[in-house]
Design a protein around this nucleic acid. Structure first.
Lengths: 326, 326
DNA sequence: GGCCGGCATGTAATCGATTTCTCGGATGCG
DNA sequence: CGCATCCGAGAAATCGATTACATGCCGGCC
């Protein structure tokens, strides 16, 4: 039992050549039914499992899909990964999850490792959108960008501009002085949500005030610090639109430290908040179909892996206003 | 640029044999300095990267460590994974993250895939502790169990009994009727925390009442349902000790649905809650060193991978009472 | 009836690395 | 000065699969 059976063992036991065994296990075509049966029986008897390294070496592909995301602790990304995982597993691929912590260096290291592993394909939410697709397109590995765009590859993103407009407009119904805390502007989610925010302002004839805008890093502590800065302004904002869930939680913490009645400042988040953080449902929020996003990305990736050659496609998924304050 | 340089290309450019190149890149011993230099120069010039599949095929090992956990969305596990990741990456391994959703079937499927991939080692938080180590020990792959124990392999766990005693005792300071919602009793975390709960009760001379104990599944919805059951009792509990963070959040939701003043029922969670869910810090909680847990597990796994052969070891990490109600 | 085509099967090359074995030159010792 | 030893480097086997090519058998067609 110690040693693992290999293809040639199966071949010997079944009394056929290794080529035939391989054909039975893969093509299944053009092999006499009787031999097929003998092979399958021998395979079962020996408990044969193919060696994916050897196979991968020959076919130049590993049945592994790499997923590179900036933050495994963010529910948005974990749900998204679920979406990818479910589809990808159905198709026999293993999922490798890599966490970049929103840092370019880690991202690069992981991409190198994944390319080394000759993964069959990659889904990535790039730290910076200027990333050069070229560097791994070289290796011929299909790539799909998710949530954030990237040049030259298939992308699945949210309609950030529309979503941000919807959220900001809702805040503007009951406030004039609306601030925003965005993610890094080098990410498309950061810059596009800012665009939406500005458009919503101009739609109702309000000028953009630079002091009401803070660029942060999508982390709880980043949101916390940014909110403190906004709260320290001479003229405090009446509402704050946060670019993601973690920063909204940070802002919430900051607000409750500074104000006796935290509800004086309306809060909004692009991503939904866990129930426990907002039992009253006061925070304006979008329903972001993260699971679906993942599925779409996986779908496109699988098509590429199967050889689809067309030009880069892009899918934009809509969001929906979820909760209303009051 | 299209094709990737291989070892023999480097050898040709450097004017040496492939064996020499391999020696330079691995042993680095016993090769004339001049040749070493030529090889390294050729390598740099071609941008050579080794093919991990080919190498793995020959050395029978893949520079990948598999991590199998029941819930990627649980911060406890994501922090734990961070701990593993950091240590493992320093040592040149890639981390494959697999999510079992607390179901045995998925767990098994992932283990098979990982064994197929010939990962160098595995860290697992098993869905059921009775899992047979034998089935993959066979493949000779080192395994470390984390958070939950498993027979015959190295384990890193929390001191669940002591932790549960500490939490329950704290609740008992201000309440007599203390209920508990545990995780599945087939997990060691589930059963041991129940043991701690019972011991704390008996320490102060209170009998265990079966109706005050509900077994759930570590999910938010499971905690929610369980809490509703407890709240429907004729004689309501005065406090509830939840086996993990998600169930505590679920219980919190249930409580706030049933009671006008949720603070009437004291709540405790074995794992810490996100700040936003408990701004006042009323919930009794343990500091669980999840990151450290992961590091220890990774440490032991690396030792095994490097050939350590001793008997199975087990490390128990202490927790600490974190917040106090009132 | 002989030849050709097609198809099922086997043989052997191949993927890209590591590693054993071998060989030749240099060194050391008697 | 000659022989044994040691060591560095190359040739070739090897890991375990896939697959191009060779082979042999069968049936059909002229």
């Amino acid at each position: 039992m110690a040693a693992r059976a290999k293809l040639s063992d199966v071949a010997r036991l079944a009394g056929v050549s290794t080529a035939t065994v391989s054909r039975v296990l893969n093509d299944n075509d053009r092999v006499a039914p009787e031999l097929v049966e003998r092979v399958l029986k021998a395979k079962a008897e020996l408990g044969y499992r193919y060696n994916s390294l050897a196979r991968g070496l020959r076919t130049r592909a590993n049945a592994v899909v790499g997923v590179v995301i900036p933050d495994v602790t963010n529910p948005f990304f974990t749900d998204l990964v679920r979406g990818i995982e479910d589809l990808v597993r159905e198709n026999g691929y293993l999922l490798v999850l890599c966490n970049t912590d929103e840092t370019a260096a880690k991202e690069e290291a992981y991409l190198e490792l994944l390319v080394d592993q000759q993964v069959a394909g990659l889904v990535i939410a790039p730290v910076r959108s200027t990333i050069e697709a070229a560097s791994f397109d070289l290796a011929g590995i299909p790539v799909v960008a998710v949530d954030r765009t990237m040049n030259g590859v298939d992308t699945v993103t949210l309609d950030n501009v529309r979503g941000a407009i919807a959220v900001t407009s809702r805040l503007l119904e009951s406030a004039r002085r609306v601030a925003t805390i965005t993610g890094p502007l080098v990410t498309t989610t950061g810059s596009e949500r800012l665009v939406g925010y500005r458009r919503a302002l101009s739609d109702v004839g309000i000028d953009f005030e630079p002091e009401l805008f803070v660029e942060a890093d999508y982390s709880e502590s980043g949101g916390y610090a940014a909110a403190h800065r906004l709260l320290a302004l001479e003229e405090r904002p009446e509402a704050i639109f946060c670019g993601n869930h973690a920063m909204a939680l940070g802002a919430m913490r900051a607000i409750s430290e500074v104000l006796d009645d935290p509800s004086e400042i309306a809060l909004a988040s692009f991503e939904p908040l866990p129930w426990a953080a907002d039992p009253g449902g006061r925070v304006v929020t979008l329903a972001v179909p993260s699971y679906e996003l993942g599925q779409r990305a996986a779908q496109m990736l699988l098509e590429r892996i199967r050889g689809f050659e067309g030009p880069a496609r892009s899918i934009v998924v809509q969001t929906e206003l979820l909760r209303t304050p009051r």
